[in-house]
């Protein structure tokens, strides 16, 4: 019941974004993908989310051939750096979206959707903001809405692409503590992309350091910090 990523490769034209990336993490883990820009961490995340197709490699997750499933059936909650909220819908409709687009037979009743939205709003400390539009919210609030929207579908996996990259330092710190709290409560396997090592080491159970399309080293924050196994990792961490 774990996540096993095996030798993923992906090219964009002549640029090899992923070059045999492999990692293993237990179900329910909180994994940070850490690396400089261009190291392939976002590409790896997008492949897991089904937004990009891998050229080679396999992913097994919860005993499924993850990459064989179409994106819309994976139930991978994706959180984007720039929120990607539906700008013409209010907060409540944004959060309800994933439930409302389900086929009729799997769709919860209107009352159930409403209750779920209400529950998520209070979990995200967004009470009373359900009628607001994304443009009327602060960056931190928007990202909490995006997270609520991703959690509404009861995702099998939560994928976050530099979710706090556009926020100021204080809000970043608050949100990452709070994200960890949400993860522990929901118990969903979470992959978190960041180039900020403090952030990675502060929230994750496991940190995977990426460089030129591969995982250079993976381990607990303490292990990676104490014992960097390649020159790149020790240099990257000493910045």
């Amino acid at each position: 019941m774990s996540l096993i990523i095996d030798s993923l490769a992906k090219r964009f034209g002549t640029f090899a974004a992923l070059n045999g990336a492999s990692l293993t993490a237990p179900q329910g883990a909180f994994v940070a993908l850490l690396g400089p820009s261009g190291s392939g961490k976002t590409t790896l995340l997008r492949i897991l989310g089904g937004l990009e197709a891998a050229d080679q490699g396999t992913v097994r997750f919860a005993d499924m051939n993850w990459l064989d499933m179409p994106a819309r059936e994976r139930k991978a909650g994706f959180v984007f750096q720039h929120y990607a909220l539906f700008r013409h819908m209010n907060v409540a409709r944004n959060i309800a979206f994933g439930l409302e687009v389900r086929p009729r037979r799997q769709r919860p009743s209107r009352a159930d959707i409403k209750a779920r939205v209400h529950e998520l709003l209070s979990l995200m400390q967004l009470e009373g903001l359900g009628d607001r539009y994304p443009s009327q919210l602060s960056g931190g609030q928007r990202q909490r809405v995006a997270l609520a929207r991703a959690l509404a579908i009861e995702p099998r996996m939560l994928l976050l692409d530099e979710p706090f990259g556009a926020l100021d330092a204080k809000v970043r710190k608050e949100l990452r503590i709070w994200l960890r709290h949400i993860h522990d409560k929901a118990g969903v396997t979470t992959i978190f992309v960041t180039h900020d090592q403090d952030e990675a080491f502060a929230v994750a159970d496991l940190v995977a350091v990426m460089n030129v399309g591969r995982i250079e080293q993976m381990g607990t924050p303490q292990d990676v910090r104490r014992d960097p196994r390649t020159k790149f990792v020790s240099e990257f961490l000493s910045i």
Partner: peptide, 13 residues
């Protein structure tokens, strides 16, 4: 394309 990608990941056809 981000809003469309978000919709796709939320299970929309």
């Amino acid at each position: 394309r981000e809003e469309e990608e978000a919709a796709l990941s939320l299970g929309a056809s």
